[in-house]
Amino acid sequence: MTPRVSLNSLFRPTLCLALSLLAGQACAETTRYPLTVHSCNREVTFKEAPKHALSHDINMTQMMLALGLKSRMVGYSGISGWKAVTPEMRTILDGLPELAAKYPSVETLLDANVDFFFAGWDYGMRVGGDLTPQTLTPLGINVLELTESCAFVMKRPPASLDDTYNDLRNLGRIFDVQDRANQLIAEMQQQVATIQQDLPTEKPRVFLYDSGEDRAMTSGRLGMPQALIDAAGGRNILDDVEASWTRVNWETVVERNPQVIVIVDYSEITAEQKQQFLLDSKALQSVDAIRNQRFIVIPYVQATPGIDNVEAVQTLAKGFHGA
């Protein structure tokens, strides 16, 4: 009997050669199942590559699509209910259904025969909620947690771009697309290195403003903005706060006197409206960033862990240093 040869086995050496020439790296080994990966404080075992995957939020959906995993997905969730979808993103999502505008239910996942859920704590999952690894694993649904979000369930070091690289690397192994993942990581690392080549040693004091009026929603040292600000040659004024996305009093912002304010653009309240609110706030009139009107705007998808983090670093570096 003539042995069956898959198209993937024929295509992989060609892809591997092309990617290795571009990246100057050896190709990764084919995934051998069962595969066990580390996710937050858990070990997750995959008997085979998932066939009915669901990604939550725009950043995690982008990661999966960038790795060519659209055919392995039943859809995505948590995008249109929170963030405006750009024309570019709408083109990328074409043909992939949104199973829930905000938070999917367990029934939503079961009805779609989901076997893999890529989400994060405070990105589709919450401690004690209906959707957690503990509730979904017994139903045959493996969960990969967004690395940066692990701060909500365990003690971990400050956020870094390595968190995003780790997520891409895990996806590459789980779906047996390591070469694509390694190439994407190498490209991102090279772009960041290029941005950082001539950055000044002086680091401006930076405050990230997500939302909020009575108190400010922002990021401490455990959230991705910490990594972005640091990589761009700035200093997060809340880099001593052991928290990810969190709220602070305006008195704290005034006391630490940021020289630059980074605004996260999403939802019904525009970046322009957020900036005007800050400019009009009587409590903030002594802050350097307000007096000098130094604002930088980045979209939500760049402020959260994902492939657009490099664009955020570039925008921030230019805003901080004119680089």
Rank of each mutant, 00 (worst) to 15 (best):
M64N: 13
T304R: 12
E29T: 13
G319R: 07
D115M: 05
A84P: 14
G68T: 15
A100N: 07
L15A: 12
R205Y: 01
A100H: 07
I92R: 14
L17H: 14
A26K: 07
G75V: 09
T86V: 05
G223T: 03
A53M: 06
D111F: 05
R72I: 03
I174L: 05
I290W: 10
R126M: 11
Y76R: 04
D130F: 03
A112R: 06
H52W: 00
S105Y: 08
P13K: 11
P305S: 15
H56R: 01
G68F: 13
G81R: 11
P200M: 12
Q134A: 15
R90F: 00
E272L: 03
D210Y: 08
A243D: 15
N142F: 00
G78P: 09
T315P: 00
D308I: 00
D111E: 14
A323M: 10
C16V: 02
R294P: 03
D130P: 05
T132N: 12
Q293G: 07
V114F: 04
Q302Y: 14
S80V: 06
R291D: 02
V106F: 01
K203T: 11
L99H: 06
V206D: 10
Y266N: 05
E48K: 15
V287E: 02
Y76D: 00
Y266F: 11
S71W: 00
F11Y: 11
S6C: 09
F320E: 10
T218I: 04
P204L: 03
P204D: 08
F277T: 10
P133M: 11
P13F: 08
P258H: 06
R4I: 12
A53C: 03
T14H: 10
M125F: 08
L171C: 09
E148R: 03
G95T: 09
I263R: 02
L279R: 14
F320W: 06
V153Q: 10
V262S: 02
G78M: 09
Q197C: 00
Y103W: 01
R32S: 13
I307K: 04
V153C: 11
A323W: 05
E29N: 12
L168A: 05
M1Q: 10
L316G: 05
L99K: 07
D214A: 06
M63T: 02
S6R: 11
I174E: 05
Q25C: 07
Q62D: 15
M188A: 15
K282I: 00
R221A: 15
T246I: 14
A227R: 01
Y76V: 06
Q62S: 14
I79W: 07
I269T: 15
L19I: 09
G129P: 07
D176W: 02
Q302T: 15
D230C: 00
L15F: 04
T194W: 03
Y103H: 05
A243Y: 06
Q285M: 04
F46H: 05
L22N: 03
K155N: 11
N8V: 13
M64S: 14
Y300H: 12
L316S: 06
